[in-house]
Design a protein around this nucleic acid. Sequence first.
DNA 1: CATGCCGATTGATCTGGATCAAAGCCCCGA
DNA 2: TCGGGGCTTTGATCCAGATCAATCGGCATG
Lengths: 253, 253
Amino acid sequence: MTANPILRVVEGAATDRCATCGIRQKAVCAYCSPPELVILDSFKSYKTYEPGEEIAAAGEDSAFVGTVVEGVVSLSKTMIDGRRQMVGLLFPSDFIGRPYRPVAPFDAVAVTQVRLCRFTRKKFEALCDDSSNIEKRLLELTLDELDASREWMLLLGRKTAKEKLASFLAILARRAAGLTDDPQANTVTVELALTREQMSEYLGLTIETVSRQFSQLKKEGVITLISAREIAILDFARLLDASGDESDGDALY
Amino acid sequence: MTANPILRVVEGAATDRCATCGIRQKAVCAYCSPPELVILDSFKSYKTYEPGEEIAAAGEDSAFVGTVVEGVVSLSKTMIDGRRQMVGLLFPSDFIGRPYRPVAPFDAVAVTQVRLCRFTRKKFEALCDDSSNIEKRLLELTLDELDASREWMLLLGRKTAKEKLASFLAILARRAAGLTDDPQANTVTVELALTREQMSEYLGLTIETVSRQFSQLKKEGVITLISAREIAILDFARLLDASGDESDGDALY
DNA sequence: CATGCCGATTGATCTGGATCAAAGCCCCGA
DNA sequence: TCGGGGCTTTGATCCAGATCAATCGGCATG
């Protein structure tokens, strides 16, 4: 816990009301009415995590669930001999935690500094029972996560190293383009929140292979490395092409 | 459609009432009250599919959702060049279809002969809105599927060919042991519903590698091949060991 | 009983990505 | 300015699993 406690209090007073929450329209509370938000306000608590800090551990008691307000969280599973696979990446407005299960099925770790809006799992389950608005939104979010995770199974099971990296970068580029709402910029700059090692864990590769594929895409003129942790997409169409997905690019970009 | 129409009618009259449904306590309708079941009875329709028959196609209109009553269904995604990955296997009582989305995200194909209890997607969505019992159970099922699919991501991204096959056989063996409710039988016989090719699509391998791993496990005395499509587990502890998962075996077996 | 077909097995070889091994780069602190 | 540590890149080699290629075996059909 390195956060300054005085700063925490100031944040709490100024910005921690649901009414002013920037991600509410996409989060699990999206469908809540103003009176319901008042109830949520009274039960939620915020917590900040530093990069690398553990949020939940697979196999251990999962006392909290909630929403990612800021930052990026990784979900992963580790085998006894140390092999590790990331099974999800959570961004702001994504739901985190496993309702209706006392034990967390996966490790959750803060990739960047992370701010969560939390409820105790028990309380959240009770809120779900009371408010079909929360339950309905959670169902939608869970169905979307399931689709995404199955899509990732195709990547892990069948794609080549280059296709894997290109797919990942295309997702980040879409996110970045969507967030900046830049209409048809030919060049999008993408912050890489992950280290090469974290990317390798997400993509089912080694760190060296990830690095080599970056070099390859650079050599082909698809991307430029601004720094190790920031790239520019020079040719999004070719990136999509390299990803092995049928190009639905123009609709989203 | 090869099913005999007369047979279909007889089935409908005799066994198609929710009250006598053998899988209801686990399906999406598990929490429905008797009056709700009457409503479901009035909206549902059964349909039988032959092995290999397509139930839904990725990218096409998804008009129905429902429950697998009998048989096994595969969910998969195919790349433009033909590489294919199975992203799920559905057994009796599993939910099939994608509510709240007009287009199916994955191909669904009958592996064995399959019998579905179906609702039009629109009607089912309306039922969800009316009955929080259905919505709640669908949420539970979806959360479970999400956990399972993330577990499979670990298999696809990090496990060796032998670990993949052992994991798959262990799952089938647990199912078989659970269904027969055989307490501590040292030898369990497992029907393989899938061909080697289908297994390879599920495990992210080739057909040859799957076959070689079968031979390997046989040589090591872990399993016996009764026929190409039926095996006996001779040593479940060693099978679990070969799967690369920490052994939680005794609890489940 | 031959024939043919489809799935499964087995063998030989190839290769993409892992592993092993150095550098290189960048930032931070002395 | 100089080290030093943590990422990242790059090179050399290895190997698990893919690919290519028969062969086999069970079963249905003529």
